[in-house]
Design a protein around this nucleic acid. Sequence first.
RNA 1: GGCCCAAUAGCUCAAUUGGAUAGAGCGACAGCCUUCUAAGCUGUAGGUUUCUGGUUCGAUCCCAGAUUGGGUCACCA
Length: 594
Amino acid sequence: MEILIRNKVIEAINTLYGQVVDENQVQVQTTRKEFAGDKTVVVFPFLRFSKKGAEQTADEIGKFLVESIEEISAFNIVKGFLNLSIDKAYWINQFNQAARAEKYGFIQPDANSEVVMIEYSSPNTNKPLHLGHIRNNLLGYSVSEIMEANGNKVVKTNIVNDRGIHICKSMLAWKKLGNGETPESSGKKGDHLVGEYYVKFDRLYKNEIVDLIATGMNEDEAKEKSPVIKEAREMLLLWEANDPETRDLWKMMNGWVYAGFDETYRTLGVDFDKIYYESDTYTVGRDEVLRGVKEGIFEQMDDTSVWANLENDGLDRKILLRSDGTSVYMTQDIGTAKIRYSDFPIDRMIYVVGNEQIYHFQVLSLLLDKLGYKWGKDLYHFSYGMVELPQGRMKSREGTVVDADDLVAGMIDVARKVSEELGKLDNYKDEEKERIYRIVALGALKYFILKVDPKKTMLFNPEESIDFNGNTGPFIQYTYARIQSILRKASEAGIDVPLQAKDLTINDKEAELIKILVSFPEIVKEAGANHSPALVANFVYELVKEFNQYYHEFTIMNEPDEKVRKFRLLLAKTIGQTISNGFSLLGIEVPERM
RNA sequence: GGCCCAAUAGCUCAAUUGGAUAGAGCGACAGCCUUCUAAGCUGUAGGUUUCUGGUUCGAUCCCAGAUUGGGUCACCA
């Protein structure tokens, strides 16, 4: 409709004033609620063509549009804004399209669809997942769903950083202090257990530094000379040299971590189509770097370390291989990229990684380009903002890291408490109750995180638990549950919900609801273009808020006019479906009752 | 210090990408359950959109500068 209006406006200006205007000079937008009308054309930009006042120009264009577009029945003018009224029949027709489709607003991928690979999560195997990872995982999963709803073939991928000096640190601490402790022997979740040893290493290291400084060494030197850090470095060399004992220990401890991660991923409801491990890709990266040296793209120093000089690209020098020959993060990312492109026919690559790594991805993009990969230049770094606590950034040293598992468990406790107080589920089996608590708890957490613009830094206050009232996941789930309750009542009463609405008049509130509802396809598209789950979240909230007012103001089941009653049932059902579909894009489930 | 990013109600976030009187939730205050689930609905209070200039018919949005906060510039990841 907006496109039609835009074209007709261009036509109007051409016939009325003999001028050709560019398509993007014509602004058509939904009319703000406080004014009469459905669509608004901003006429200010056309005044220089008409050489007339705003009101008169609007009037002339308005008359033209009423004549040339059948669905436009009337218009009004406020200042330079031309508000067009569109027939309710048009909206009912639009509504029927929404009611008819099972996945309204979604585009099915086909053979010609682009293949989009989305990397997210990418944990290190030396510590458990925390709140920052949660934002990453939820965004990654949701963006994947959104891209798929936009008709792309999506491959969700995860690169596990399973090797490197940081992994050796936990291994070393476990070897020194572990006494053979395992997840089984201690009853601890594997990733948490390994995380404890990473912290223990840090403590050892710090103590050694303090001791060395006491002997008169300066800090930098102490950091280099500490025996335990030297041991860790030796361990990394042993690991890269395939030392069996080191490899076995590594495999065992990583195994514990993976079991822990799997559990957390399952709880969060995220998954992957293909998981890569840095231990498999870093050698490919190293070979690529060495090829770069041979071809004169990178330079090797006398100490054998390899560097990329990006000063001509406005960046710095970047190390690619250490003097001891071991790889760094960047080396691995080069290898992973190469392998991925040979595994899949990737058209677009999206990295869901925090904005602290903007520089890293600028460099990666350049390096891949220099190595001759044509896709290097247009990799997309989906750079999201940090999650901060009221005191600022999470710091493991200060023990302020919010653990992912603890957070989810805490949310479930709150959901249980709230639900028990309300007592609406008293007649249900414990198993069913627990299932609903989980849905609601995760709905609260996910919505809380996904409703904010991914680019922005967001604040999380662990002191105040996430709300269940107002603009929240549970509020939306609750509305969905109420709709299902109505539909159950209708079904019990033997009322069939019609498939289409026809031959009826709708009230203003219903028209308003339909207008919001039918904007969903546009929202899905925008969310895809902007990689923004927040747009979907805001849409669903607006829809639900409007529906709750409607629910309060009008009765559905008790409506005496059968035709109206049936239409309202269809309206409620369609809105329920859209809530569910919208939430599915966020990875949030909806309960049938709560 | 160089570069990058942000700043909107007491708090957490929106604002159709330059449009109309800047909106929600939380918190505060006042109402609404004999009525399809009150995790709901209604109302009141709350704003010099950090500041100063500029561009424009029109600026929360674009530009310049300042202030404040954050990120990043490692043989860490």
